[in-house]
Nucleic acid binder design. Structure first.
Lengths: 181, 181
DNA sequence: TATTCCATGTAAGACGTTACATGATTGA
DNA sequence: TCAATCATGTAACGTCTTACATGGAATA
């Protein structure tokens, strides 16, 4: 399971509350999706394993929060896990099932769905590209610290992923367009 | 849930036994992963909903099998489901969590993992490209039937997906290489 | 006045993974 | 003789999703 390790990875950079983690893990800007319920449950487990601990931070005009930190044990666990080989994530994509059997529905319906998906991916792509420009507008990536290189590479994966979807949607629409009459 | 619809989609083309479906849904050549236990469970559900039915086929020298067919009701359900909008699949990729916190491990370990992944994706890519050459070695895709177009497009998605991973692995290895000493 | 944001949780159910279970046949 | 293939399932457990629940502060 990588959710627990994804949380450790985020907490290694900065301490976060459950609420803050939940926002990160549900935003387009992140490559691991999880709901707040998953986060809170994992945090309890991580704490009972001694991989994280928390301090309660009192706040004025808003609820107090629990700020979680990674422990040394947590960092060791994360490093250990990184060294283990892992398989590619199984692909489970609704849209591909729909395209495979798309000839059963009207061509218009399928084309609309592809247009819609194209737009979603286009928006994510622009968001990611904005992050690249803001944070990595440099000529030589070798000047980055190892940590910054690692973060850049995950962002780069996001850019490629979304761009690839947009291009495929365009291909698909072009091939299906002739059937729209 | 798309597993039930993925099964309907496959059965719409040809009748399959649970065993045959399980092979398809666990192979590299398919874009929806499921174990045989999931398949058998879903088939029972689909049958009690009246979306599929089966005939028992007696075989010599090997166990009998249940050959499942889609019913009219099942086809209608599939067409209905295609028309509903669906969101992109949430990304949950171990490797990206590892890369994000990769600076905590030795650079060699991370590079090895990336090499390993590159090879996995390269193999899948070659497999998909082989399928394209075998089945769609044509100049004009407009000559394909709507059904064949749809099948080609899912395969095309696979080609793009694997190629994109390979290229990203190369980028990542190039950027991380300097830290390997 | 209604909605969103902050902040944390419980509970139920759907879905996915891993292990267990059987048994004949075919090929190395 | 050992492993793999064909063929179908049960059981237990782990993970994910969806709904329910609370309550003050800020904003529209």
């Amino acid at each position: 399971m990588a959710l627990e390790h994804a949380i450790l990875a985020v907490l290694t950079r900065f301490p976060h509350s459950g609420y803050e983690l939940a926002k990160k893990f549900s935003s387009v800007g992140f490559f691991w999706m999880a709901t707040h319920q998953q986060i809170y449950r994992e945090l309890s487990k991580l704490e009972s394993q001694g991989w994280v601990n928390f301090e309660t931070v009192a706040q004025v005009d808003r609820p107090n929060k629990k700020l979680y930190h990674v422990t040394e044990l947590g960092k060791q666990e994360l490093a250990k896990w990184i060294a283990e080989p892992s398989e590619p994530t199984a692909i489970r994509e609704d849209l591909l099932v729909k395209v495979l059997s798309g000839y059963l529905a009207s061509p218009t319906v399928l084309a609309q769905e592809l247009e819609r998906r194209r737009q979603i991916h286009q928006e994510k792509l622009q968001f990611y590209r904005g992050l690249v420009e803001e944070n990595y507008a440099i000529a030589d990536f070798q000047t980055l610290s190892p940590e910054a290189k690692c973060r850049y590479l995950t962002l780069r994966r996001g850019v490629r992923y979304e761009a690839d979807w947009v291009e495929w949607c365009d291909e698909a629409l072009q091939i299906l367009r002739a059937d729209l009459g």
